[in-house]
Each structure stands twice: as C-alpha cells, then as structure tokens.
Simulated assay, not measured.
Amino acid sequence: MRAGGNDLVTGHGLRELLRVTGTHPFVRWEVTDDLADTWWAAGDAVAFQRTRKNVRRIVNVMGTDDGVTSLLNHLPAIAATVSPERRAFSVSVPQHLEPRLRERYRVLDGGDWEWFHTTTAPDEHPSHERVVPLDDVARAAEVRCFLEAHSPTADTEPGQGERWFAVEEPDGSLAAVAAWGTTRAGAPHLSSVAVDTRLRGRGLGRTIVGAVTRQAVAEAGVCTLGMYSHNDVGRGLYRSLGYEALCKWSSRPVVIER
C-alpha cells in the first residue's frame, strides 16, 4: 500500500480501496460500497469503515507500523466524518500497535480478536455425518441455554437469520452448535461455535467446524470467522482445518477531544 507521504489523503470507492490494499481478504469481505464511500490513507496505511451487526461504524487501520502511526495522529479528522456527534468512536488497530493508540488518546476498555479466512475445504471425515441443520427458531430457548452454559462469550443469538448446525446426542440434546452468518460483503462467517464442556476433548469442535466449513467453501468458495485472542484452543483448531489468521485486532473506543 502506498499513498504518498504522511499527510492525510482522502479516498473514495471500494474499487480503489481494494486496489491500494492489494485486495486484502479482510477488506474484500468486510467492506461494502457504502462503507468505502470515504476512506483515508497516509504513507503505507489505510483507515476504512466497517460495521458489525448493531455496532456503530468502526474505523480499522491497516498497513505498515509507520503508516498506521501516521493515521492515528489523524484520528480527529477521521472522527469528524465517521462520528461527528459522538465524543468517542470505535477504532481497531493491529494488536502490537495498541500502545501507540494509548500514547496519543484516552482509550476505553475493548477487546482483542483475530480474523480468520480460508478458501480451502477441510478434508472430509466420517464424523461430519453427525452434523445436522438446527432449527434455531423453534429451539431458540434451548440454544440460548446451551450457549450460556458452554460459551458465554458467544456473540450470535438464535433466531436472527443465521443458519445453525448441531451435533446431537442420541436423545436429541445438543452436544455442539455453530452459526453460519454472512459478512457485510456476503462471505460465510462462522460464529458461536460451542461444545458441551462435559464432552470436550472428543473432537466435536473439529467435527462441526470442519463440516460447516466444507459446506461453506463448496457453496461460496470462502469461509471466515472471528475469535477472541485468548482462545488458544480455538486458534489451534482453526489453523489445523486450513484457516489463516490474517488480522489480529485491538478494538477500542477512543475519546476524541473536540
């Protein structure tokens, strides 16, 4: 990515944003034409808008360390466009550069997470036959209870339009679940993967993630997912199934003095 010196340059349009980022998969699948109406560049870095469900627009900053640092210095100007009425707005930066964000601004509590992507289907396995579609509307209360007990940080609720899948016990109770939603740009996005804590270590996570990923790649050619960075077990599982962690983000509300 190269936009010139360290002065702030304003760009417009998804096509140009994809060009300057080398068609980075995160931009390709998380940014749409409306979000890319205005974006910014400085040095070898870009700042662009994205959104997640009901969250207000977020600014992601991507590029070389020096370029990202330059863009962080320009956050007040960016905030004037993205969030002119709010004192704080959400910013995501590469995790190793989060201290630079704190050096420059007052930063509130947020989260560290990683974005994974694959275009390769995992190998087929006989256990995938256990993965079945789940009626998350009719069984919404059951799914909520399962997530609360076995994955309380899961961020996808049943009954919101995602496709859900499950591994069931012989009596029909849930042993594992996963939701298949879509990114803003339409890629399959895996979330709320949960395995009954009493059954962990039996390969159920591998079974449900592998089966759903195979189907997603077969249908769309790609599958994505996000994961909180403290989940070392999940990271190992996803990598072993062909996912690559392309981005490691620190997401923080940043207070802008106006």
Rank of each mutant, 00 (worst) to 15 (best):
A42M: 02
W40V: 00
E103K: 08
R19G: 04
A41W: 01
W115A: 05
Y105F: 08
G11E: 03
R104C: 01
G11H: 03
V20R: 04
D44V: 01
F26D: 08
H74M: 01
Q49M: 07
P99K: 02
T38R: 11
N54D: 12
E16Q: 11
Q95R: 12
D109Y: 11
R15E: 08
T69C: 08
A77C: 06
F116L: 15
N6K: 12
G13C: 05
M62F: 11
R15T: 06
S83G: 10
W115K: 04
D65G: 06
G4Y: 06
G11I: 01
T23P: 11
D7E: 13
F48Q: 03
A88S: 14
E16I: 07
R52Q: 14
W115H: 12
E30V: 06
P76L: 03
N73E: 13
A42Y: 01
D112Y: 05
P84V: 00
N6P: 12
R104W: 09
R86N: 07
V55C: 15
A79H: 14
S92I: 04
G111L: 11
Q49K: 14
W39A: 01
V31L: 12
R57M: 10
G43E: 00
G43Q: 00
V20E: 04
W29G: 03
L71K: 00
F48V: 00
R19D: 05
E103Q: 11
W113I: 02
L97G: 08
F116H: 13
A80E: 10
S70I: 00
G5D: 07
P76I: 00
F26M: 14
H24R: 11
L71V: 02
D33E: 14
K53D: 15
A45R: 02
R56S: 14
L18T: 02
D109R: 14
R100M: 11
G5L: 01
N73K: 12
A79I: 01
I78L: 06
V61E: 10
A47M: 02
L75V: 00
G67E: 00
T120A: 15
V46A: 06
R87E: 08
N54S: 09
A47L: 03
D66C: 09
D34C: 15
G5Q: 04
S90C: 12
R86K: 09
T38W: 13
H24P: 11
T81F: 10
N54Q: 13
V9R: 14
D37M: 10
E103M: 07
D66W: 02
